[in-house]
């Protein structure tokens, strides 16, 4: 078959899972998931509620570790090194692999302090350095122009869309390599969503992004690769264009055309 392929097939795998199984007490939430995450691309994970896509996302920076009764088999690699090796400090890992959640969760402090929070924890004390990090992060998150005159006001006064970009800026402030986004636009209006999608597009030249979304049009718009999850399995993974125009597997087709269930 002659198909248009995306131009990112040759990018190296920034992350990769191999035969990943995740058990939560008696329940197997992920079944043999093997997925590459190409560097400087956006990978979207789609699938119905409870299919395991968010659980999968959380394995990528060990967020499931904090849940009692969770057990993992298989490998999760970052730059070819296992992130579950005994020597890996989850705090350091989460600095490299940052996460943005469904609801923006700014800390109840000023905009400035929200961004400076992470760098301070990681040992940056000098005011000039912090100023620079705050400005660069807010610029990279396309928020600087909107907040530069009120950096020391509370972050809780920002709109939902601004708060979500603030949270992204906070992630960027600790200089991550991979950004995980779990339904980042589901609480945003269409204009804030459009801004966020533009931002995702800009960020991928410097970062690798994995996004979980229920909105298939959004997955189609922002991602280079798409993985479809169902009942804990990854059913199909391909270039986004292929998934949304001519998927190979009927279950994928049924889901994205709304014939499911």
């Amino acid at each position: 078959m002659k198909m248009l392929k995306g131009g990112y097939m040759g990018n190296k795998n920034k992350m990769e899972t191999r035969n990943l199984n995740l058990y939560y007490k008696g329940f197997q939430a992920l079944i043999n998931v093997s997925l590459p995450i190409k560097e400087n691309t956006v990978t979207a994970l789609i699938g119905p509620s409870g299919c395991g896509k968010s659980t999968f996302l959380r394995t990528l920076n060990r967020m499931n570790d904090v849940i009692d009764g969770t057990r993992i088999e298989g490998e999760v690699l970052l730059d070819n090194d296992s992130i579950y090796d005994v020597g890996v400090d989850p705090v350091v890992l989460r600095k490299k692999v940052g996460m943005v959640f469904q609801r923006p969760n700014p800390f109840p402090m000023s905009i400035y302090d929200n961004i400076a929070y992470g760098p301070r924890i990681h040992g940056h004390k000098k005011k000039d350095t912090l100023n620079e990090i705050v400005e660069n992060s807010l610029r990279a998150a396309a928020l600087w122009d909107e907040v530069k005159d009120r950096l020391h006001k509370s972050a809780l006064g920002l709109s939902g869309g601004q708060q979500q970009r603030l949270v992204i800026a906070r992630v960027l402030a600790v200089d991550p390599q991979v950004i995980l986004m779990d339904e980042p636009a589901s609480a945003l209006d269409p204009i804030s969503t459009a801004k966020l999608e533009d931002l995702i597009h800009q960020l991928k030249s410097n970062y690798t992004i994995v996004i979980v979304t229920h909105n298939m049009q959004q997955a189609a718009r922002v991602s280079d690769f798409t993985g479809f999850f169902l009942n804990g399995e990854m059913i199909e993974y391909d270039v986004t264009n292929t998934i949304f125009t001519a998927p190979r597997i009927k279950r994928t087709e049924d889901y994205i055309t709304g014939r499911f269930g």
Binding site: M216, Q217, A220, I243, F244, T245, A246, P247, T252, E253, I256, T257
Partner: peptide, 9 residues
């Protein structure tokens, strides 16, 4: 309807 896959085709 923003059709996808076989509907889009």
């Amino acid at each position: 309807q923003q059709p996808m896959a076989r509907d889009l085709r």
